[in-house]
């Protein structure tokens, strides 16, 4: 793929207090790519994603999105590039005092410039995309965990962002819905040319989506493998990596 790079992570170090979670990692994501971050539980995937969207200030290193440094000065500088980004959080992060439809409408109302009845049509389209067309009037506390995930996804892609960050989009979903979500992700990637960064453990999604993946590791605090998932499963020199991708215990 000859597309140009859209995200660059340069010698990033992630540290909480004295605990170094990731040290000195570098990689880049190309435009229109589906980029998968894998790794064991607690290996720092969510932390890495929080750094990539500028929610956290790195202990060292830099993150660039579209050539602009996002890690420089905390959330307040970043609102302009942030509108080109959509984020699905691991815990969905829906606003509990608003209905599902109001949650999805929030960014559309705020930034698209549409009239309110057009916003309503748009919310309907987005909810239909994730299969929640009948749940717009429910509060987040009234829907299931998997439905919250899907509502969060609808909100993340409300403004058709250039880059979507998805933290475990198919966690808590049944296999059928999970593969529907995978198809949706592929579809968004293809038709809207969205760059998608996914954190996931789900091997089916990894192989269904995967063009490129990196694997983080807790012990070595860095990237232990990168490349296409199928290649990593079959040809990686590290047996731990091969085991991870073929679901075999040590």
């Amino acid at each position: 793929m000859g597309d140009k790079e859209i995200i660059r992570v340069e010698k990033l170090t992630v540290r909480y207090g004295d605990d170094t979670i990731l040290s000195d990692i570098s990689f880049s994501v190309r435009q229109k790519e589906i980029f998968i971050i894998v790794g064991g539980s607690g290996s720092g995937k969510t932390s890495l994603m929080r750094h990539m969207v500028g929610l956290e200030t790195p202990a060292a290193g830099r993150v660039y999105i579209g050539g602009q440094e996002i890690s420089a000065s905390g959330p307040e500088m970043a609102t302009e590039p942030l509108r080109r980004i959509g984020v699905l959080f691991q815990g969905s992060a829906l606003l509990g005092s608003m209905t599902v439809a109001e949650n999805v409408a929030l960014p559309i109302e705020g930034f698209s410039g549409l009239e309110s009845d057009a916003v309503a049509s748009m919310v309907n389209i987005k909810l239909t995309l994730v299969g929640l067309e009948c749940y717009g009037a429910y509060l987040p506390s009234e829907i299931s965990g998997g439905m919250k995930k899907r509502a969060g996804l609808a909100r993340a892609m409300a403004l058709n962002p250039d880059i979507l960050f998805l933290d475990e989009p198919s966690a808590g979903l049944d296999p059928v819905t999970a593969s529907e979500i995978d198809n949706l992700i592929l579809h968004i990637n293809k038709t809207l040319e969205t760059t998608i960064i996914i954190v996931t453990h789900d091997l089916d999604s990894i192989f269904a989506l995967g063009q490129k993946a990196i694997m983080l590791d807790k012990e070595s605090k860095g990237i232990i493998a990168e490349g296409s998932p199928a290649h990593m499963r079959d040809h990686n020199p590290d047996p731990a990596v091969r085991r991870f991708f073929s679901r075999k215990p040590a």
Partner: peptide, 22 residues
């Protein structure tokens, strides 16, 4: 092909759901 795929996402009918009344 591309535009057709996007249009196929949009359901031109209205969804039939029972919405809880508030």
């Amino acid at each position: 092909e591309n535009h057709g795929r996007i249009l196929s996402l949009v359901d031109f009918g209205q969804p039939e759901c029972s919405v809880p009344s508030r």
